[in-house]
Design a protein around this nucleic acid. Structure first.
Lengths: 272, 272
DNA sequence: GCGGCATGTCATGTCGACATAATTACCAGA
DNA sequence: TCTGGTAATTATGTCGACATGACATGCCGC
């Protein structure tokens, strides 16, 4: 499945894929899966939404940065109407904030919201993993085993980016196995919001160790259809991941968004 | 709080409130709280979204019914752009579906989706109630006690509509007490989707009895800060509510959406 | 020199119009 | 009468333009 989506990825972004790092391509694909769920064909709106969304979770656009609709319209050589709609899609996923009569900007993730998201994710994901442990099919298990192998390979190779995306794919496959599209959509949306922080969190070697061990344990629980264990494992892992993020926030690892955002535009104009 | 929001309700709907039944007003207010969360001032978009959303949850517009943007634009005497945006807002809440290049229509709730929603709601609401039992303030308890009294009064008076809205308010206050805005937003959205069915479910006297008893028990658990009990009570109640809905679906209580939806428009045009 | 107010500039929200895709209506043939 | 293909019609997606509200700068009074 990954191969086919990869083949089509280039039709979803305006710039040629060769000029983009592989991680950005992954980001586009994940955003597409979530934000442009129903847009089966690459429309103008979903293309913009995917690319801007990917830029946000790849930290190319920073927290609080302005997303002027005229600026984006120029860049994508289109009118403001599709841009507006794309930004609305991203707002729905929590990546963008659009105050009334004010410039849209990249949503700022404060620690309080991260806490809330992880609390919800822990509970919901626990239930989903529990269901998955019961309802899983042999095909589910096969796919999960392969993804675990990918995860392990990335871990051994110390490839942070590969580990991160394999992680995302593993969770994605797990939520599919639970056969609850509603829960999956919510979890996907919550994942998208915190994806920006994932790299920070997983950049700690101890965190990666713990995460890898967690996945192995979780896989065992799924193999043995031990639903309660899967539930508890997921919750525990989320608690640990949150603790790491709390530490990062406390250490000031998240730069607070700059104040007068207007100056950036002026500087850019002056540079021309 | 209810009073002040009531006072302002008329500015959010185009038609004078006197011509609307009270239940519709409640629906508008609830939709506004959820869908137009950030739109603090009554803009054109939120007004349309609130009114159409209220019509959907009040079953004035039936499942699968077309929501042509030109038709709505005529009705609200505006252009199609704000209508489009309003429909996008409602799609985000799951009340409307907008396929590409096809007419938007009222989302159809099949039993499978209802099952999924109740599963998610049970788990998430259980966690939220658990948190609320721990974090609740005296003000929270006071508000909840008053709402329980309203619920009880409506129950004694056999006022289905009043009971339904008091129920919504009770849950709303409970989610506030848990101090988790993210969880609240998700639960609100899920509530909105199933609100159309609530009247059906609560129209059964035995269901109302059970529901009332449940609320009393839940209130006790909150008073005693018994978090695990609150969790289990909520889950159990959701399970029971779902069982009732399963029965209603099995009995064909939900009319399947009509096929050729176009005929309605023609009939309406011929009537003029 | 500094704070508050007026003014100018810019972006947003909304509008009407057009091209294109989808859907209906029509018609011929079986 | 029903079915299949084609034409007409309608609605959607997109566009450029305009009015109103927000922000920044500059001015004036203190």
């Amino acid at each position: 499945m990954t191969t086919t989506t990869f083949e089509r990825a280039d039709s979803w972004i305006a710039t040629p894929p060769s000029s983009q790092p592989e991680s950005f391509l992954n980001a586009v694909l994940v955003v597409r899966r979530i934000v442009a769920e129903h847009h089966d064909r690459p429309s103008l709106v979903s293309r913009v939404a995917c690319e801007v969304g990917a830029e946000i979770i790849e930290n190319i656009r920073q927290s609080g940065e302005d997303l002027s609709s005229v600026e984006l319209a120029e860049r994508y050589e289109t009118s403001r109407t599709p841009i507006r709609e794309a930004l609305l899609l991203l707002e729905k996923e929590g990546l963008v904030r659009i105050p009334q009569r004010r410039r849209p900007h990249v949503a700022v993730l404060d620690i309080e919201e991260v806490r809330e998201i992880y609390r919800v994710r822990a509970v919901l994901f626990g239930a989903v993993a529990s269901d998955a442990a019961t309802l899983r099919t042999p095909e589910d298990m096969q796919a999960l085993r392969e993804l675990l192998a990918r995860l392990s390979a990335a871990h051994d190779a110390h490839d942070l980016s590969a580990y991160l995306w394999a992680n995302v794919e593993f969770y994605n496959r797990l939520t599919i196995a639970a056969r609850n599209a509603t829960a999956k959509r919510i979890l996907d949306s919550l994942l998208l919001r915190t994806l920006r922080l994932r790299r920070l969190s997983l950049s700690q070697p101890t965190r990666r160790e713990k995460s890898m061990a967690h996945h192995v344990q979780l896989m065992n629980a799924l193999e043995e259809q031990d639903a309660p264990l899967a539930d508890v494992l997921i919750r525990s892992n989320h608690l640990h991941a949150l603790a790491v993020l709390e530490q990062i926030y406390a250490d000031g690892g998240i730069p607070s968004p700059m104040r007068s955002r207007r100056r950036r535009r002026q500087a850019a104009a002056a540079a021309l």
